[in-house]
Write a protein that binds this DNA or RNA. Structure first.
Lengths: 208, 208
DNA sequence: GCGCTCTTGTGAATCATTTCACAAGGTAAC
DNA sequence: GTTACCTTGTGAAATGATTCACAAGAGCGC
């Protein structure tokens, strides 16, 4: 299959969210135009995005809300539970551990790790903070698929290396530093200071 | 001036971070190739990005680290302090209020708001949580430039409307829902569940 | 069945971004 | 000053993403 652009995957995710809302409201079908209006895009974009994966609609009628939901969940790999470990129990790590938005979509936080003995043993929303020494053995034992990195920038690369060696294939990084991973491992980064800097740029250039 | 792509601004921000590291290490000049290596891009990309804003380098030599840092800070609007209000003192709002990465780059959290009386009056890292009723009057009084929205999805749009009416021109949204703002206001969103779904897609499609 | 209306799926065209490739300009050694 | 060597800045080419536009189906009323 042809490689799909990240922007497309991002939109599919958004479409799924809207479909779930529509389903909750009891709607049976939805057109590409209605889906586009929700997501701030165009009907052609919606149809093109879906066309990479097949034909899901009926001409003249639109898409079956439930059938398309199911297909999108399948495409995105959301039909199953993903086990997530969080590395770093500081402010961000703790907030992530307690965030309901993950659980609701099939992502289960199975463990949280920290270096600081003062934090080890505490409970965050039902998950006990463990010592980072147990990282490698736990990842195998708990069958963790995804790691969230929420440690200071200086420590991030070494912890990424450790979770990769332990078998994790997908990482979401919150440390404000660029990281490298070997081929076959997917790394994404969320950098909140960077987002604010983009806003700063927009503020000083809003007049053109 | 021609409109600059967001991807370009994002990279400029990254370059600035590397330049600061280089400066701390006592380096005087840096080439586009060295800058590119740090940021995982190419030297041509670095030069093209900078060329939108002027000529900063010397042929045969590269860029002056300190001069380019200064120019980038100017371009990004980081030479000044931006006042930030956080709306929502739940897990995410609290983590944001206490995050040092903002302060270090000129973003000052001047106020935090919540609906819940149990949270109002608490202190988060030196900033008192205030009642949302005071939102409008405070934004004017505190000269807030940027609002971070960290409330449940259902409440997000109405709070965006309120901060926009109060004069905020830049918003960073953490609620997992699409929002609309009038022209002249910049809105960006960080959706952590969405990031995990993109990882999920990568995991189930890693074999092609 | 026929005509009317609606909406999909998709090549082609447009628009945006990245990469290439190289002339021009600058440094440094001798 | 001349030569050898670097690195920038930038048009042009290539690649990638979005939008356009329309033929092909599908439902519905009569």
């Amino acid at each position: 299959m042809k490689r799909i652009a990240e922007s497309t995957v991002r939109r599919l995710s958004a479409y799924l969210r809207f479909l779930e809302e529509f389903e909750a409201h009891g709607h049976q079908t939805i057109s590409s135009g209605e889906l586009a209006a929700q997501g701030g895009t165009t009907s052609a974009q919606v149809r093109k995005d879906l066309s990479f994966f097949g034909s899901f609609g009926k001409r003249g009628l639109g898409y079956s809300v439930s059938a398309l939901s199911t297909s999108l969940r399948e495409i995105l790999g959301l039909g199953r539970q993903w086990n997530v470990v969080i590395v770093g129990a500081g402010k961000i790590g703790a907030a992530l551990a307690q965030y309901n938005g993950f659980r609701d979509r099939g992502f289960k936080v199975v463990a949280v790790y920290d270096f600081d003995p003062a934090r080890v043993g505490r409970t965050l929303d039902g998950v006990v903070v463990r010592d980072q020494k147990e990282l490698e053995s736990d990842i195998a034992k708990l069958k963790a698929h995804i790691a969230l990195i929420a440690v200071p920038a200086e420590a991030a690369q070494q912890l990424v290396d450790r979770v990769v060696r332990a078998g994790v294939k997908a990482i979401l990084n919150f440390a404000p530093t660029p990281l490298t991973v070997p081929a076959g491992v997917t790394l994404r980064s969320v950098n909140m200071a960077l987002e604010l800097e983009i806003l700063s740029y927009a503020l000083v250039n809003s007049d053109d």
